[in-house]
Every structure is written in structure tokens, then in C-alpha cells.
């Protein structure tokens, strides 16, 4: 007796459709975002800590806003928002790169390389997830702090500008940390590099204006691109939308992104050559 299954023709009715680069990247981006959402313990610190520091700073430094060198602001909270956004994105972008390093450690990255997906799609997909999270973080901080007295002089346009800036910054930091993940293949090494970002944040004008710093601190803040990025974002909040503010808020992270993407692609080539 023959079963219908064994006698069924084996020829496929149609050839499997080759997925486009965009579809592959999209699928990997969705995976990246889902992996973040499924592990809230990884993303909660990047949402809570910046808010905690903003609240702490607002209560601690409210009288400091009258000091010489401080820009005219309604409250320290308005001043602190840009620093909180950058701080949150630094935290969050490291999480995405750590996940990439974990993929390398557990062999999933090699399986992706063995699949017919494009090489750049693998990296871009991971970064796209980080960019979406960066935009979400920016909006989250704005919405949470609004009831606590935050005022954004730039209005809706200012918020959109902040989100664009946050998204590009997430790309820049994500690419930089991904380069580290690709070079080392170690989640611990990526985490170990995080303090360097923290140092870049603290030796900038993220928490206090450059004009109030002196000596070597002021010089370091002057040369630190994070200072110029934060000041552009801050101007969108405390002064309103202007060409100068938008240029600094968007072009500085864009320049950082170009450099860090080049680094990460180079690291990818290095890894492909080694494997």
C-alpha cells in the first residue's frame, strides 16, 4: 500500500523567493528590538538612571542656575534634559552592542554569516534596533519630565529635533560599541569599554555649562564633541529651534556616526577575514 504522502511529487511548486536586503535588515532589526523588549532588566537602567540623575540635579543645583556663565533657564530641569537624553542613549546603545557580542559568543553570529543574508544587513539590523530605541528613549524622557515642570521652547519641532539627534547618536554609539564587539567577540569587553563613554560624558558640558568650568576641565570640555552635541540639543529646549542648534544637535552625532560606522565595517571585515 502506498500512502499519498510518499507518492506526492517532490518538485516544489515554486522556487524559494530570495529575500531582499531591506527585508533581511528589517527582520534583523525586529529581532534586535524584540530582544531588548524581552529583557526589561537590560533596558530599565537606561530609562531610570538618567531620570534619577535629572531629578537629583534639579533638586541639588536649582540655585546654581543663577551663577555667572549659566544660560538663562526657567529651571535646572530644562538645562538637564539634554544631558539626561545623552546619558540614557549611552547606556542603551551599549546594551545593543553587548547583545551582538553575545551573539558572537554563543555562535549565533556565525550561523547568520552562514545564511544567505547580507553582511552589512547583519550589522545595520542590530544598529537599527538601537536607533529605534534611542528615539523612544528621547520621547520617553520628554514625556515623563513634562509633568515635573519641563518646558521645551522649541515646541513640537524641538522635540522632533531632539528625537532625530537621539536617533543618530544611538547609531553612532551603537556602531562604535559594535566595532568593539566585532573586534573582541566578548560581551565583557564591550561592558568594560562603557566607562570610557561615561568619562566622555562627565568631561563635557552635559551637567554644567562649559563657561563655569576652569583650567584643564574647561579645555577638555571644549574639545569634547559630546559638549557641542549636548549644547545643540539643549538650545532646542531652552532657546527654541534655530539653524545653529539643529546643526550642532544633528551634524555632530552624524559625523560621529560616519566615523564609527566605518570602524564597525572595518571590524566586520576583520572578523570575516579571520573566520
Amino acid at each position: 500500500m502506498t500512502s499519498p504522502v510518499t507518492t506526492a511529487p517532490l518538485t516544489p511548486t515554486r522556487a524559494p523567493a530570495e529575500t531582499s536586503t531591506i527585508a533581511q535588515t528589517w527582520a534583523l532589526s525586529v529581532r534586535s528590538i524584540q530582544s531588548l523588549l524581552r529583557q526589561p532588566s537590560l533596558i530599565v537602567p537606561s530609562l531610570i538612571f538618567p531620570l534619577f540623575f535629572a531629578a537629583l540635579g534639579t533638586s541639588s543645583f536649582s540655585r546654581a542656575t543663577g551663577l555667572p556663565g549659566f544660560p538663562a533657564v526657567d529651571s535646572y530641569l530644562d538645562f538637564a534634559l539634554a544631558g539626561a537624553i545623552v546619558q540614557g542613549i549611552l547606556f542603551g546603545s551599549t546594551t545593543g552592542a553587548t547583545a551582538l557580542a553575545t551573539d558572537i559568543e554563543n555562535g549565533f553570529f556565525d550561523r547568520l554569516l552562514a545564511s544567505p543574508s547580507t553582511r552589512t544587513g547583519i550589522i545595520v539590523g542590530r544598529m537599527a534596533g538601537g536607533m529605534a530605541y534611542g528615539a523612544f528613549q528621547t520621547l520617553f524622557f520628554v514625556l515623563v519630565l513634562l509633568p515635573f515642570g519641563l518646558s521645551i521652547k522649541g515646541g513640537i519641532g524641538g522635540v522632533v529635533g531632539l528625537m532625530v539627534s537621539g536617533t543618530i547618536l544611538a547609531l553612532a554609539i551603537g556602531a562604535l560599541m559594535s566595532a568593539m564587539a566585532l573586534l573582541t567577540g566578548s560581551a565583557e569587553a564591550v561592558q568594560g569599554a562603557f566607562p570610557l563613554l561615561f568619562i566622555a560624558l562627565f568631561f563635557s558640558s552635559a551637567f554644567f555649562p562649559r563657561e563655569t568650568m576652569s583650567g584643564i576641565y574647561g579645555t577638555m570640555a571644549d574639545f569634547n564633541p559630546v559638549s557641542h552635541l549636548v549644547e545643540g540639543m539643549r538650545d532646542l529646549v531652552i532657546e527654541g529651534v534655530s539653524a545653529s542648534a539643529l546643526a550642532r544637535a544633528i551634524l555632530v552625532p552624524a559625523a560621529l556616526a560616519v566615523v564609527s560606522i566605518a570602524l564597525s565595517l572595518r571590524a566586520l571585515r576583520h572578523r570575516l577575514g579571520a573566520s
Binding site: 546654581a64 551663577l67 566607562p195 568619562i199 562627565f202 568650568m213
Partner: peptide
Amino acid sequence: LMPVFQSIAFAGTFFAIIQI
């Protein structure tokens, strides 16, 4: 390293508060 960094970074960043 963390307390060394914190002492130096905070002192530099919040240098102006001594003017209060």
C-alpha cells in the same frame, strides 16, 4: 578607579558650585 574618577570629574564638572 571609580572613586578617583568620581572625585576628579565631579570637582571639575561642578566647579562653579563653590561660588554659591
